[in-house]
Design a protein around this nucleic acid. Structure first.
Lengths: 265, 265
DNA sequence: CCTTGTGAAAGGGTTCACAGCA
DNA sequence: TGCTGTGAACCCTTTCACAAGG
């Protein structure tokens, strides 16, 4: 679910499957909570529940890191916290820049989860000269002109793009040229990057559309019915024909005997 | 990469694989852009490039929807836009509520991508009485007390949670009890929901941690080196031993002959 | 000739179930 | 006894390569 290009196709980084890497932060969060409550050990079952996965998956995930548990007992919380942090590279500190200080950029700058886990906001950058110097989350906004020098001065290798879609590729190119090799993209665009640069994207609108798909399936015909019962077998009524459709089109066949499709004018 | 519980295990909704559903919004966006430029048809190769996937995958994805292309020619842009929209349930309008109008909630409320694709912000809800009535993105913020009535009055079935982590589960419970069956969660917590409710989560801090993992692999020993070359075979130097580590621990073995591990005090 | 649509193969990821060990 | 660690089976996803068809 990431990377514009260069998904590190078969080159699984150091033997740990990508799916496992994506879950390590989840385990880490659950473990941190346990640690704060001074819980000394935890079983795979308990930890799995706290992280929202099943225990077999968790044990298999941990097996890629090494044999860090004790049979009959469970896992040492502090020890695991450290091992996972190290594996994720969170024992070092990562300076990041956020480009595009609109509503979203400001929200990100204020987000506490940043600093708590090894990430440090090195600078906030915006193209609007009127923003320059204004403090957001305790940091003065810098102008885009300074982007390159900020990155090299701070040794930034991770950049966050929170600009409008139209500016994203251009910002991305400048970040990459200045030495950034990991990008978190909030702009609703596909970014093209050279090999060796990782891109992950977060797209609100896509997430909502996926939810809408499932929501549509749940409600066979009657949407907006506040009943919370699970309808596992969604009613197969096929197309919920919309109002504004016209201009019949022939020769099209749906996957399982759908009625001839229709398209809007 | 979603759903706290109830991942719709084998019950793939109406024959379309989950991985395909997750890409449909991507295709839709690329197609919409083509449509705005009045491009009449597009080949799988062109569209795949625009969407950031490969063409074989795209064709396979479309094959689950039906035979919507023309051999030797490609796909009719307008027609595909409509088909995908319908498949995703975007031909109807989905009222959503956003709960938690802090920095992030406000950013979401202002996010244009919402309205553009069938989603309508029915209400902004916050627990802070001081926020009540204040306009955000043109809508007055409503108090949490009104949550249930807002949901039932507007037939809301999709809720967005942008509260602090501590409040998320409680908000979630109330949303579900009031009839919401799809939740987009921005709070860094695992939400427990009953069967039949879908949860998708967006977690900034997790995305950054995944990037950090790959970034750490790229830089074998020397981080912050602004060279942008791709090092496909990450150097296998094993553990980048951090400074603050102490308290040696025996009997632990890493996955591939790591040195005996160490944990922090 | 060009591009779609799709069986078949290959590759990952998840789950099962139990051997192994404290 | 109880829980971890893991081969093996299963399932989902991606990729390949080519037949089908405008």
């Amino acid at each position: 679910m990431a990377t514009g290009r260069t998904h590190r196709p078969a080159t699984r980084s150091r033997g740990i499957p990508e799916a496992t890497v994506a879950r390590l932060p989840l385990y880490l969060r659950a473990l941190t909570a346990l640690s704060e409550r001074s819980v000394p050990t935890v079983s795979s079952e308990e930890l799995a529940t706290a992280a929202g996965v099943n225990s077999a998956k968790l044990r298999k995930d941990f097996s890629y890191l090494g044999s860090y548990g004790t049979r009959g007992v469970g896992y040492d919380v502090e020890y695991l916290v450290y091992q996972i942090s190290r594996e994720l590279g969170l024992t070092q500190d990562w300076p990041v820049v956020i480009v595009g200080i609109g509503n979203l950029g400001a929200a990100l700058a204020n987000y506490g989860g940043f600093a708590s886990r090894g990430f440090r906001v090195a600078a906030l950058i915006d193209a609007d000269p009127a923003m320059a110097g204004k403090p957001v989350a305790g940091l003065p906004v810098r102008h885009t002109d300074e982007l390159e020098s900020i990155i090299s001065d701070n040794g930034v290798s991770i950049g966050v793009i929170a600009t409008p879609a139209g500016a994203a590729q251009q910002v991305c190119d400048r970040l990459v040229a200045a030495g950034v090799t990991s990008i978190l993209n909030f702009a609703p665009t596909v970014l093209a990057v050279p090999d060796g640069v990782d891109v992950r994207k977060v797209d609100l609108s896509i997430e909502l559309q996926i939810l809408a798909f499932h929501e549509q399936r749940k409600a066979g015909e009657d949407v907006n019915q506040p009943g919370q019962g699970a309808r596992t077998t969604a009613s197969r009524t096929g197309s919920t024909r919309p109002a504004g459709a016209a201009a019949a089109r022939d020769g099209r066949k749906g996957p399982d005997g759908d009625v001839p499709a229709v398209m809007p004018a």
